[in-house]
Computed example of a mutant assay.
Amino acid sequence: MTHTPINLASLRLAPKVLLHDHLDGGLRPQTVLDLARDCGYTDLPADNPEELRVWFRDAADSGSLELYLQTFGHTVAVMQTPAALARVARECVEDLAADGVVYAEVRFAPEQHLDAGLNLDAVMESTLSGFAEGVRAVRDQSGHDIVVRCLVTAMRHAARSREIAELAVKYRHDGVCGFDIAGAEAGFPPSRHLDAFEFLQKENAHFTIHAGEAFGLPSIHEAVAFCGADRLGHGVRIMDDIELGPEGTFGEAKLGLLANYIRDKRIPLELCPSSNVQTGAAASIAEHPFNQLAQLQFRVTVNTDNRLMSHTTMSEEMLKLVETFGYGWSDLERFTINAMKSAFYSFDKRLAIIDEVIKPGYAVLIG
């Protein structure tokens, strides 16, 4: 049996599933420049694509979630027109497909795109049309299919979460798969938005919550116990409720009540290794709890978070994990199936992608 060597080129051939990716964190540098020129935005920190790419990466390497989030001021500023939203969404699909992603849930906050006079419906329709156009373009150009669905995000420091939740339900048959809250965690607990989550539960709608990234166990506890989150955006701080065995072994690890609950309920963790290091949630890839959580059988998934800010792709995130923790193709297949099982997609369609796309794709690579 011959295994395909794991490198960046072979990883791009592997079918991948992405659950945590921000639309406004994944623009192409040239697109940022083009859109800034089109709308008259003059505050960009660089005027050529390579310098701009480096600036976003370096500015995001702050070790602070609050400072990391400031980089989005530039991308959001140039995403205020129907044409800009549609272009960014279309290019997002094309870039993910080129990296071998077969299913993705891409999130964005419609309330941040109203500065030029658009209303929420116009923002949604422009973005969803861009996603659809991208899917068609990928099929026409490569013959491959990619499924891209939208998570509608509310900003946790604002007071529009119920309105945005209603927007997610309104467009659930047009490409929206669920709801999310994002933004600075400290001082803005998810329980501030209980009315939105109660509405979503009443409507049988899916939702994930950013929790356990910059803030600790209370954020995770509120997200699952009070709000009923289907998934956790990041969730790395669940390690605060886990005591490993002697010399960091897993066999005698002791899980606290919250960690046990998360694992027992198979609540997926949307882990984003590079981004978690940039925001200070982990000191380095080697010290990221991904492997510990994987060894302890939590439902871990691999994600990009913000491809522009982290200068990354799904393939590059997987490669970092392979190089750091020694994973093989079977491990990567497991993480990918974890993600597909956790997608906000109907059961039969999830199963079809696992059986008809993911397993055959990895079988070729495993040999």
Rank of each mutant, 00 (worst) to 15 (best):
K349F: 12
R299M: 10
F347I: 15
M318Q: 14
S342G: 06
Q292Y: 13
F290L: 02
A339M: 05
L296V: 09
L308E: 02
R334V: 11
I337H: 11
R299Q: 14
H288I: 03
V300G: 03
F298L: 08
S342E: 08
Q297V: 08
A282G: 07
E333S: 13
T313M: 02
D331I: 06
N338G: 02
G326T: 07
V322I: 04
K349N: 13
P289K: 11
Q297H: 11
W329V: 07
S330F: 09
M314A: 08
S310W: 00
N291C: 07
A286P: 12
S346R: 14
S315G: 10
H311P: 00
A343F: 07
A286S: 12
I285N: 03
K341L: 15
L319Q: 09
M340N: 00
F335G: 01
F325K: 05
F325D: 00
G280E: 11
F347P: 15
A343P: 09
E333C: 15
K320N: 12
F298D: 01
W329D: 10
T301V: 07
L319G: 01
F347L: 15
V302C: 04
T301I: 08
N306F: 03
H311A: 06
S330L: 12
I285L: 07
E316C: 05
G328V: 06
G326S: 02
F347M: 15
L296R: 12
G326W: 14
A286N: 12
M340R: 07
A343Y: 12
W329K: 01
M340V: 04
N303H: 08
M340D: 04
A294L: 14
A283V: 11
A283S: 14
K349R: 14
L332C: 09
R334K: 12
M340E: 01
F290W: 06
P289I: 07
L296Y: 10
Q292M: 10
D305V: 01
M340Q: 06
M318H: 08
F347K: 12
F347Q: 13
D305I: 02
A343I: 06
T313N: 07
L296D: 07
H311S: 05
T336F: 13
V300Q: 02
A343Q: 14
R299N: 10
V300R: 03
V302Q: 00
H311E: 01
R334E: 15
S342M: 11
T336A: 11
M314Q: 11
N303A: 03
A286H: 11
T312K: 00
F325E: 02
I337D: 03
H311K: 04
L293F: 13
L296G: 15
N338D: 04
E333A: 13
S284A: 10
L319M: 15
Y327H: 09
F325P: 01
L293A: 07
F344S: 04
V302H: 00
Q292R: 11
P289G: 03
Q297A: 13
H311T: 05
A281N: 12
Q297W: 07
F335H: 05
Q292S: 15
R307F: 04
S342V: 06
R334G: 12
L308T: 05
V322Q: 05
L293D: 06
K341G: 14
H288F: 09
A343K: 05
S330N: 12
V302R: 00
S346I: 09
S346F: 03
F344C: 04
V302S: 02
